[in-house]
Design a binder for these strands. Sequence first.
DNA 1: TTGTATGCGTTATCAC
DNA 2: GTGATAACGCATACAA
Lengths: 366, 366
Amino acid sequence: MSKKVLDFSSRIRILRNISNPKRFGGKQLATIKDISQMTGFSITTVSRALNGYSDVSDSTRKRIKEVAETLNYSPNGLARGLVMKETKTLGLLVSGMTYKNIDNNFVFEVLCGINDSAANSDYDLILFSTNTAKQKMKTYTQLCRERKVDGVILQGVKTDDPYLQEVLDSDIPCVLIDIPIHSEYVGFVSTNHKQSAQTAVEHLISLGHRQIAMVNGYPEAFVSKERYEGYSDAMSSAGFSLKPEWIVNGNFTEEEAQQQAAELLKAYPEITAIFCASDMMALGVMKAANELGITIPDELSVVGFDDIPTAAYFQPPLTTIGQNMYQLGHEAANLLMGMLRSENSPKFNILQNELVLRSSTAKPGR
Amino acid sequence: MSKKVLDFSSRIRILRNISNPKRFGGKQLATIKDISQMTGFSITTVSRALNGYSDVSDSTRKRIKEVAETLNYSPNGLARGLVMKETKTLGLLVSGMTYKNIDNNFVFEVLCGINDSAANSDYDLILFSTNTAKQKMKTYTQLCRERKVDGVILQGVKTDDPYLQEVLDSDIPCVLIDIPIHSEYVGFVSTNHKQSAQTAVEHLISLGHRQIAMVNGYPEAFVSKERYEGYSDAMSSAGFSLKPEWIVNGNFTEEEAQQQAAELLKAYPEITAIFCASDMMALGVMKAANELGITIPDELSVVGFDDIPTAAYFQPPLTTIGQNMYQLGHEAANLLMGMLRSENSPKFNILQNELVLRSSTAKPGR
DNA sequence: TTGTATGCGTTATCAC
DNA sequence: GTGATAACGCATACAA
């Protein structure tokens, strides 16, 4: 029995050398086993020496580290992850990383924030590259479990995404961006959308505007709901009645916003200001106004949301609500890593936006 | 002997249930072993059934798939990678994913292209989050080997980066963006920088300009060398002498370009046009001109490079060389995956840029 | 301080 | 068509 085993294993060993089977990086990489053989110490000792355990003599450690160096040893993260139950990777499930979103810095800024945060830790990021076709095969949860990420950040998923609930129900630590849910394994980051919207509208009101319309994103989005509430609160507080027909959805795209705004401005020429739920939609509104011969800000004031880099270059430069997306990503990653570190670390964080005054708003004229 | 083994293993098993040790996702995840036990088939059969091997009966496969479904089974990518020598992940070593680069869509577009390409395959992306501090500890090669990526895309690394050579020397399949090196394991993608620069300058010449300066990036960058050559070729071909003092480096930043341009324009008021190696630097140049009371394009023509989204909103809108960064990323990923698939797949790809005419260039006036 | 033995979850080889 | 079993590279409980 014992003999047979030896025979078999040695046969394998020979085969392995002869046939040079497929292996990582093409050629054979050094393992702790190799170091063990070269130094004469057991793989246990090698492992502990390399991992900085105290119960190994200085001379041994020195020798082992030397050999590791000369062999150009790198630990195998897969093997380590397999036994450690921890991979030091964060999953990123980010919508909007596709061709048509290229003009939208939003996602990139968040990404930079996450990346910078991870760079200061020992985590790497894994970007789940999925499209609608692939999504049908694997749920978000499956992606995370196969890759064994320690936690995941979700950005741009819709509140009614069927897979979202599955992630929330799972026990994968998770941080949501702009979806306010927190529980044992779930946290979130967001900004004060409602209050910011209110501030934006109050700014218009303080300028003397009374006839203020709104171009929102789409109703299912959490941020749209919040921004709408801010708008309506500001209007109500000022004693103005809400006109449902003055609130349209531009689906966060420039084109739809332009079209919606054109109809709005034609049907209700009394409108003197429009609050938009994104800068790109504000751009659409400005284009619509332009085509109708309405000058901004003299005849129409426009406020955006986001403060994308381009907003400062619009004609006229756009007054908008500035969101610090970089910080949002940064906080998201920090929050997640905190959750991974301890049970009772904070589960959410709400950042404050600020009104950026430029030249697209003025007193109502004409 | 045999008995002792059993004793020990069962002790472990008990311990494992009692102490509920740390495990992925908090709770126990189903493995093929569990499926094996529930169905009564061996783990070998389960593995083959799940992986679609033909030598398993239909009824068996059906049963196994059923149980896998109810157990909510997901394969463990770590274990699989360990034995398969393949992880289906591509590494991304991208510089410029940090706070100060937020305004630069360049990186994001490349990323989108890579991401979209990966989305149509079975690869995921791993973003190595490194900073200067961490870089001192681990080389790019070490990062790749630890994570066992199948290949890596390098973007924004400098030609003189000490770690670059190490990656090239390693046997990790690798695609470089804008560094023209190819060998057995190395490929690259780039655009026709030199010819595009030439085209840009020829455009200025055809407008009647003779006194054309250049604001370049920094000398070590491959793209800067190429763009300089395009500039000098165009000048030489037109019979104009090159004035070294008219060629300055703005280090690809708006600020430095602005400063350099200011000095240039003050020292040589005869200059009627400036070719810039990036749009952000062109913006700096335009600001410098503005401050000196030089109007664009009447008194000074400016051409940029990149065609970032904002360029169309500059005042005046910027004439520039349009690079399709999305496509660049897309091709990079495709190239790499092709190399992973077969030995003799193409190793490089050079995309064509195009001149985008806007309003920052005109006939020399004054 | 060091070594032995076992397991992490999967695939591959071989025998039946 | 199915099942033992070795192996991937590493970490760890325990014995020595």
